[in-house]
Design a protein around this nucleic acid. Structure first.
Length: 977
RNA sequence: GCCCUCGUAGCCCAACCGGCAGAGGCAGGCGCCUUAAAAGCGCCGCAGUGCGGGUUCGAGUCCCGCCGGGGGCGCCA
């Protein structure tokens, strides 16, 4: 091993200690080991089958472990010290488990398609591929310098055609599938779970055979009576990936449509903060709603942070209630609809429904009466001469509002009478039907029964329009508020063969639902807040759809052998954007500007035909929906993953601790909580589809999820409120100054705009990667956010330096450990440390593991000579956290190979047993004395000795003793009379 | 408005099933080494756990109500 010959450390200008562990020496050690790991493929994980099949190597290792990070987006901004936090944590876990003998799969890919990459490219005037690949290369270099023990062979990039070939293939699987609600599903918590995806060909076969019928059509025709094109259109409505013309989120300022999940609560785009409008546009959708129930239910079988589960449950928003049919009455009989169906979670309040409200987009509004009925209050008509005029005016008003304006809660209710009346099935009363934008077209049936007595929104509307209120749940004594939404006995709720009066809410709901079913006026219904996933984007930098349209405008999947559909070069990759508030603009995908690409001749089985390619691209979530599977078998050219390989790394195991069947999935997935509903919900959905279709054995992609906290940093503003460079700020007394001027301390995310960025490269240069890793892991628990403090990093450096000096001579680089046995106290300390550190690693408590290792190391510092029997296990225990310096010391201690696969030290149980312990003697819960007692002391004896102590006698001061609580051998509590 | 989280020493954090509030680090103080210095060495810990109640022999830990920080949802019938 060649020593550093040319450079000397800053603290050693004379060059007398060339082997002092400083940043320069760390840099040389780290580079050397990184090269060696790469050359020796130290972290390559063998596969049991597939192109890399090496079953003997698999058999030679222990149980498998699949560890993953949420892969990075290679942005142009580069990394700051917050980004690697999770990567270091998974690396420590993976390295520890590798030393425990596990066959560990850990790698990292790049999520490189998407809007920000495209925007960055547009800004810099370069092709997105150029900037994205440069950013990826820069990030790879920064992360390699960190010493992550990844299997580099398995790294993927979503923009690689060999990768997105399979993204497109999965899309064709979704396109070629439908969800059969009635099909039996194997596995799952219940033996006879129903509902799974099936190939669309099976649906066609069943329709052909007559064993399944289409849902009733408006024209009343059956499958057999349809022509070929009509049949295709009917089938297309069942696909999991389908084209829809429903209202979608259109952001003119971005030039693209967005998924619900990408629109913020105030109705703007998450990217760019542009206004978003609801527009009916022809778009690709994913039928994620078919999986709503399973996506909720299976959360119970995942080891995920409770907040993430809660967010997903909330987002899916399962609510149980009933649909109720109201017959349309009077002049409206002319309209096409005969009845109006509403959804309610409170069927028990039906007797209190005094009017109905439909969304402005509701189809019933197409058939309103020609004239107002007699005696219509002027306030209801909106000043219009006839219902059709009033409705048209209101629809125009609603359409011009953004989602945010429509759903602003503080706003006064608006609406207009439709001229329609509908009969309450319980009371027989004809109720007026209004349209109002507080009712949403996409939820439930787009129509509600308004019960002002039990719903504040309805109360507000009723108050505005002078509508009656009937309370059907008695509010508590002295209630002076408006709508009462709580518990109470039902009142005013008797009618045709039913009385709910006196029942509690739950009982009344059940009784009313049963009555509705019996009378054909409604039934129980579960609805979800979750909507289908809008999957197309009018963007360049994404996966092209593997779809072509024929001369009848019917979509066809591009066959497997023609995948991937490569993203073509375009003269201009910028999307066409519009004024942010230009509601009437139409999306224009960049790919549509390439007629020679769009028009294509293909043979899809019936001879060469002309087809037109789909010109939308996929959203940037597509690649992250399944990338974990490709890590398993990245070289496989015949399948996205070999089934045996998938079963090995991700397949279900035995029952969970709670007795439910295991879902399978990645053993540990670490990432930020910001992906709680987007990526994690989409990925679960695709995984379940692949599971249903038999491509994967696991039911879920990620069995265990941990959210890492954020690294935040102080930022400073001057008197004008401008941010100043945080690194130049000095603490003065109670405050801070920048170039002598006082500044104000703030706290927030690290970023250019706050001028408080610290990069990993800064840390490598000043301390080296190992010290940086130790500092990041030592700051606190993985899931806690913590403030970055560069000046505190020196603590981690001192630790490594002390360890280095305990093992190596700073002048010669030779080991200084002795082969004499350790003294008993040191040996006991070592074994207690081994036990504690092992437990800490198991539970990802790296901060406390570091504390224990520091404690042991400090203990060795006090010895005149460090025994090898302590130094070696200490080096091994430190290896997951600070792998380079550990390898270096291991090597200087005389070992040939890497320690990456050395067994982790095991504590000697005999040395963990304490012979004597300190017993705390309390009186009335306050510590009054202490006793050194044998660890196995009998309860009775301990009681006697405790009562005899001076402290107890003094505290009792003559009082008697009521009871004595003895928790041998550690505690006695004397309770005075 | 509802839901989820977190409040321990100047700062970051430990404290297992309720059982001595302190493992580790930063900063600070004292001393050592040094001509001088430090990213060197050694030593130094009275904060009763945000506030107020409660349960218990005993509460940082469990329960209730507030206060403060962070996050999610948002007219979803």
């Amino acid at each position: 091993m060649d020593g550093p010959s040319t450079s000397t450390s800053p603290g050693d200008p004379a060059g007398e200690t060339p082997f002092r562990y400083d940043a320069a020496l760390a840099a040389r050690i780290e580079a050397r080991w990184q090269d060696r790991w790469e050359a020796e493929q130290t972290f390559a994980a063998p596969n049991p089958a597939g192109p890399w099949a090496d079953p003997e190597a698999v058999a030679a290792r222990g149980e498998k472990l699949f560890v993953m990070d949420m892969f990075p987006y290679p942005s142009g901004a580069g990394l700051h010290v917050g980004h690697p936090l999770g990567y270091i944590a998974t690396d420590v876990h993976a390295r520890y488990q590798r030393m425990r003998g596990r066959n560990v799969l850990h790698t990292l890919g790049y999520d490189a398609f998407g809007l920000p990459a495209e925007q960055y490219a547009v800004q810099t005037g370069q092709h997105p591929r150029t900037t994205t690949e440069a950013n990826t290369a820069a990030m790879r270099r920064q992360l390699r310098r960190l010493g992550l023990g990844h299997d580099a062979r398995r790294s993927i990039s979503t923009i690689d055609p060999e990768f997105y070939r399979w993204t497109q293939w999965i899309f064709t699987q979704l396109f070629d599938s439908w969800y059969d609600e009635g099909a039996l599903r194997a596995g799952g918590p219940d033996e006879a779970s129903l509902g799974r995806a099936r190939p669309i060909a099976e649906l066609v076969a069943e329709l052909d055979a007559g064993t399944r019928a289409l849902p009733p059509r408006p024209d009343g025709r059956t499958w057999a009576e349809l022509d070929a094109v009509e049949r295709r259109r009917a089938v297309d409505e069942h696909r999991l990936a389908y084209v829809s013309s429903a209202p979608v989120n259109w952001a003119p300022g971005l030039g693209t449509v967005l998924a619900n999940e990408e629109v913020t609560a105030d109705g703007r785009s998450e990217r760019g903060n542009f206004p978003v409008f609801k527009r009916p546009l022809r778009q690709w959708m994913m039928r994620i709603t078919a999986y709503a129930d399973r996506l909720v239910a299976d959360l119970d079988r995942l080891d995920w942070p409770e907040p993430v589960k809660t967010m997903q449950r909330h987002w899916i928003g399962r609510s149980q209630g009933a649909v109720v049919d109201f017959a349309l009455a009077g002049p409206a009989a002319a309209s096409s609809a005969e009845r109006l169906q509403v959804f309610t979670t409170r069927p028990d309040t039906l007797f209190g429904a005094t009017f109905l409200v439909v969304a402005p987009e509701h189809p019933a509004l197409d058939g309103v009466p020609a004239a107002w009925p007699d005696a219509v209050p002027p306030a209801w008509t909106g000043g219009a001469a006839a219902p059709a005029d009033a409705v048209a005016a209101y629809r125009a008003y609603a359409a011009a509002r953004t989602e945010a304006e429509r759903t602003d809660e503080g706003r006064e209710k608006t609406g207009v009478f439709t001229g329609l009346r509908a009969t309450n099935p319980a009371t027989g009363e004809a109720l007026p039907v209004f349209t109002a934008d507080y009712v949403l077209s996409g939820y439930g049936t787009g129509a509600i029964m308004a019960v002002p007595g039990q719903d504040q929104r309805d109360w507000d509307f009723a108050a505005r329009f002078g509508l009656p209120v009937v309370r059907t749940v008695a509010p508590p004594e002295g209630w002076e508020g408006e709508a009462w939404t709580g518990e109470g006995p039902a009142v005013n709720s008797s009618g045709d063969g039913i009385s709910l009066d006196g029942m509690g809410v739950d009982e009344a709901k059940a009784a009313m639902t049963a009555w509705l079913s019996q009378h054909g006026a409604g039934e129980a219904r579960t609805t979800y807040r979750l909507r289908d996933w809008l999957f197309s984007r009018q963007r360049y930098w994404g996966e092209p759809f593997p779809i072509v349209y024929d001369s009848d405008d019917l979509p066809h999947a591009v066959p497997d052998h023609l995948l991937p559909v490569e993203l073509p070069e375009v003269p201009d990759y910028s999307p066409r954007t519009f004024a942010p508030d230009d509601v009437t603009s139409e999306p224009e995908p960049p790919l549509a500007r390439l007629p020679e690409w769009v028009e294509v001749t293909l043979d899809l089985g019936d001879g060469p035909q002309r087809y037109r390619r789909e010109t939308n691209t996929m959203p940037n979530w597509a690649g992250s929906c399944w990338y974990e599977l490709r890590y398993l078998d990245p070289a496989n050219t015949t399948a996205l993953v070999d089934p045996e390989v998938e079963a090995y790394w991700m397949g279900p195991r035995g029952p969970r601790p709670d007795g439910q069947p295991d879902t399978g999935g990645v053993d540990l997935y670490v990432g930020g909580v910001e992906h709680a509903v987007l990526h994690l919900l989409y990925a679960r959905f695709w995984h379940k589809v692949l599971h249903d279709l038999g491509h994967v054995s696991s039911e879920e992609p990620f069995r265990r999820l941990v959210n890492q906290g954020y690294v935040q940093a102080h930022a400073y503003t001057d008197a004008r409120g401008q941010y100043v460079a945080a690194e130049q700020v000095v603490a003065v007394g109670d405050g801070f100054t920048h170039e002598g001027e006082p500044v104000t301390q703030e706290y927030g995310k690290m970023g250019k705009s706050l001028k408080n960025v610290v990069t990993p490269d800064d840390m490598y240069a000043a301390f080296g990667a190992d010290v940086f890793r130790l500092y990041e892991m030592g700051m606190g628990p993985l899931d806690a956010s913590r403030p970055w403090e560069t000046r505190a990093v020196v603590g981690s450096q001192r630790f490594v330096q002390r360890l280095w000096r305990n093992v190596v001579d700073e002048t010669t680089g030779a080991p200084v450990v002795v082969d004499q046995p350790a003294d008993p106290a040191t040996r006991v300390l070592l074994h207690r440390t081994i036990a504690a550190v092992g437990a800490d690693y198991e539970q990802l408590r790296f901060n406390t593991a570091i504390a224990r290792l520091t404690e042991l190391n400090n203990g060795l510092t006090r010895l005149t000579a460090v025994p090898r029997e302590v130094a070696e296990p200490l080096v091994l225990m430190l290896a997951p956290l600070a792998p380079h310096v550990a390898e270096e010391l291991w090597s200087r201690l005389g070992h040939e190979g890497s320690l990456a696969h050395e067994p982790f030290p095991v504590a000697d149980p005999a040395l963990l047993v304490e012979e004597t312990v300190t017993c705390v003697v309390q009186v009335a819960g306050k510590v009054r004395d202490r006793l050194e007692v044998p660890a196995d002391i009998a309860e009775g004896e301990l009681r006697e000795r405790a009562l005899a102590t001076a402290g107890v006698q003094r505290a009792l001061d003559g009082r008697g003793v009521r009871t004595v609580v003895v928790r041998a051998p550690r505690l006695v509590n004397v309770v005075p009379a």
